[in-house]
Amino acid sequence: MERKRQKATTKSAMSSPPRSTKSGSATAPDIVSRTFDLVTSKAVLPFYILAGGFSFYYGPKACSFPSPRPLEFVVFKLLPLVYLMELVRRRPQTICPVHDHARRYILLGLFVSIIGDALLAYKPDVLMIIWFGTTCIAYVCYTIAFYQYYQEQTNKWAKAVFPLGAVLAASLIYQIREPKLSGLIALYTLFLVVLGYFALSRLETCRTAPAYLGWAGVKLFTLSSYLFALNFLSPSSDSWISDTVIIMAYFLGQLGIALSTYTIPLCPVDEPSNSSPLESDSSASVNLSRG
């Protein structure tokens, strides 16, 4: 009888491996479990409500609003990013200096993005060039944040970002065929490609959930920017892409960037840490619910 009970206990333990870092298990979770913990944390749910509410309620009506747009439209457009700033600003119980430095630049990038989005939401026909400039500055901030994790010897696949970016930019320039807009698109693509290079380099250095979410956020940025250019800059596309899809891709891209440093490496706050970016990122665990 005792032997059967031991077999049943062993079988149960083997059939239900630990899935989450919140369970307190000593076994390190895989990247899928960590990613699931990050994107489904209770602290992230308000962001989904704010971003989804704006995208599905205001998104389909965005083009019908006169310029300047109503104040409530601008406020609700900014609320998801404001919440992300608060989420990134929360200091975990223990952090690593590498993540701390990266978090500061991501906060700065979110702040610049809020300024650009506010101007674009208020007067999209007049302040487009200002939004373009602030977006490029935000990309520079995010690039510096990902540079904190950069390991030069592990960037084999990251170099492929440059030819892919050139192909995307060339396809847009071919469809738009306006010298001024083509130059802006080339410059914008350059900033986005450099950001993607460092994000993918980090993922090659250490395959963790925060690194994966950072790279996914950059890809969603690319998708949102490409669709936005097709809708509003290319005369042949005739706005065939839903504004809701573009806005949601943009918000989810910001979320991926924000969660890319929201981890707790195993190094105390009060004691200096000599760990490298690779070591600190690989020992990271999820801690959104404690914030």
Rank of each mutant, 00 (worst) to 15 (best):
S236W: 10
T189W: 02
K180M: 02
Y212G: 01
L227M: 10
F198E: 09
T261A: 13
T222I: 04
S225M: 05
S224L: 03
L220I: 01
M248N: 03
S236V: 07
A170L: 13
I173L: 07
I257Q: 02
L172S: 15
L220Q: 02
L213A: 12
T205W: 08
S242D: 14
Q254H: 05
G253R: 01
L230R: 15
C206I: 05
S239T: 06
L168N: 08
Y250A: 00
V218K: 06
I176V: 14
S234G: 08
L192A: 12
R202D: 07
L230T: 05
S224V: 00
R207A: 07
R207D: 04
S237W: 10
E204C: 14
S237Q: 09
S237H: 09
S201W: 01
P235W: 01
S224R: 00
F232A: 10
S225A: 08
L181Y: 11
L190T: 13
Y197M: 10
F191I: 01
V167H: 13
V218S: 11
P235K: 05
E204V: 12
Q254M: 04
T208L: 01
Y197C: 13
S236F: 02
F228L: 11
A211D: 14
I246N: 10
G183D: 11
S224W: 00
V167W: 10
S171N: 08
I246T: 09
C206T: 10
Q254W: 04
G196Q: 07
P179D: 06
I185S: 14
L227Q: 03
K219Y: 09
S260K: 08
G256Q: 04
L233K: 14
Y197H: 13
S236G: 12
G253D: 03
F221L: 06
L213C: 07
G196V: 02
N231G: 03
Q254S: 15
A209H: 08
I173W: 05
S234D: 15
A209N: 02
L187H: 14
L181E: 04
L233S: 14
C206A: 12
L227H: 11
L172W: 04
Y188E: 10
G196Y: 00
Q254Y: 03
W240M: 11
I241P: 02
F198C: 00
F221S: 06
R202A: 14
L203W: 04
L259R: 09
M248W: 06
P179T: 12
L172Q: 14
L195W: 11
G217N: 01
T244M: 09
R177Y: 08
Q175R: 11
L259V: 00
L252Q: 07
K219E: 08
G256P: 01
Y226C: 01
L187V: 10
S182K: 04
R202N: 15
W240V: 03
L227Y: 04
P210I: 05
F232M: 00
N231H: 09
E178H: 15
I176K: 06
A170S: 13
V218D: 13
V218Y: 08
L223Y: 07
I257A: 06
S225H: 05
F198V: 07
F251G: 00
S225E: 13
T222A: 06
G217S: 07
F232P: 09
F232N: 11
A169T: 09
M248C: 07
L227T: 08
S234R: 11
F228M: 12
